[in-house]
Write a protein that binds this DNA or RNA. Structure first.
Length: 353
DNA sequence: AATTTTTACAACCGCTCATAC
DNA sequence: CGTATGAGCGGTTGTAAAAAT
């Protein structure tokens, strides 16, 4: 573990590999000289490089990345090796298919911590900060752009909190309910879901469920998911995914059962933005200290009791589903998609929060 | 079917901060 | 205290694949 600094003591198991890499990148005849002025490889990692890195870490462990890179015979910076290992080669790393629950967690944790990707990633086992950052930038920020508002603006945050996240919860519940029913059927008929659709190994699954349930269980005053509604990963099988075939304009790698797109429409966005004009206690309606304030329960109550629950937004969606993004013809979404009555009603509801 | 554009993501860079020596 | 190293972050770029034309 405490390998001396510098290149001494290198007992590279991958000398052949590194030679291949050199040949591949071409042009190296005198390795001694190159060690002095080695131009490092950049860009995508080759299979050989991956193997060399994995082999070395398997034998020597990780850490001390600069010396590791030298000792493993990799013409890469230590930083590059570290990144490759942490974001790609690590055995427990998971990529793609960000599930409903993970999306919800990301939104929730980001609303709490901002761009602290590493901290957020700690609560999504197997996910890297880089992937979460990419998710945020490519999906969430993209829609902020389309909304023509800053991703850090209150408008956009309200859109997420009042519309997207409650919708996500609803869909998680729906997926869980469908899954439960399907599992019962599947148990009877002994039909197993395809292995490739299982996003979690058991450990990761358990860990993740803990985090996600923390958000969803009513005991934590989050969202008011009923107590019998155990959060389960959304295995998108043909059997249990009612929306599995739906287009996923929020990203092809997102879990097929959901993304934010479905509940993002110009009208709903406008609704959230208008909410913004109303004073709300805090940005973190469900992330305040001790989880005391602001819950989906609250919102279900405020909206649902008055017939202004998520169904309302859904209806609004349906009315506008010809221009899902409001970016095609409508120009500024606030121009023509905001219903004055809706605005008034929303403000009335929110003034009670 | 071929070409162009868009998208998603891996990877990099520059910087800051913490820690060990 | 200075230096080396690891870690983390925000921003950006390169590229392969998918989607659109």
């Amino acid at each position: 573990m405490d390998m001396a600094k510098g290149s001494r003591g290198c007992n590279s198991p991958s000398s052949q590999v590194s030679a291949e890499i050199l040949n591949e990148t071409g042009s190296h005849d005198h390795e001694e000289a190159e060690d002095q002025m080695m131009d490092l490889r950049r860009g995508p990692w080759t299979v050989e490089e991956d193997l060399a890195l994995m082999n070395y870490i398997a034998n020597h462990g990780e850490g001390r990345w600069n010396s590791l890179a030298r000792c493993a015979g990799l013409k890469r910076t230590g930083k590059s090796c570290r990144l490759r290992w942490l974001n790609y080669l690590r055995p427990d790393v998971r990529r793609g298919n960000i599930s409903l629950e993970e999306q919800l967690l990301i939104l929730e944790l980001h609303s709490r911590w901002g761009n602290r990707w590493s901290k957020i990633a700690q609560h999504l086992p197997g996910r890297t900060d880089n992937e979460i950052k990419n998710y945020w930038r490519t999906r969430v920020q993209k829609h902020a752009k389309q909304l023509k508002c800053d991703v850090n603006s209150k408008q956009f945050k309200d859109t997420m909190r009042y519309l997207w996240m409650p919708r996500l919860v609803e869909r998680i519940q729906a997926a869980a309910a469908t899954s439960t029913a399907t599992n019962a059927t599947a148990t009877k008929s002994s039909i197993a879901a395809p292995a490739t659709t299982h996003h979690f190994n058991n450990n990761i699954n358990n860990n993740f469920q803990s985090s996600a349930q923390m958000l969803l269980q009513p005991s934590h005053h989050h969202f008011g998911v009923s107590s019998h509604s155990q959060l389960t990963p959304s295995y998108s099988t043909p059997e249990n995914s009612s929306t599995a075939a739906s287009s996923d304009s929020f990203g092809t790698q997102v879990s097929p059962v959901s993304d934010l797109t479905d509940y993002y429409t110009p009208t709903t966005a406008a609704a959230a933005i208008s909410v913004n004009n109303n004073p709300t206690p805090d940005n973190s309606y469900f992330v305040q200290a001790n989880h005391q304030v602001g819950t989906y329960d609250n919102y279900s109550g405020y909206f649902g009791n008055q017939g202004f629950g998520l169904e309302h937004f859904q209806n609004m969606d349906e009315q506008n589903n010809n221009d899902q993004w409001g970016t095609v013809d409508s120009g500024d979404i606030s121009d023509n998609l905001w219903n004055v009555e809706d605005m008034w009603f929303l403000q009335q509801q929110l003034s009670n929060i």
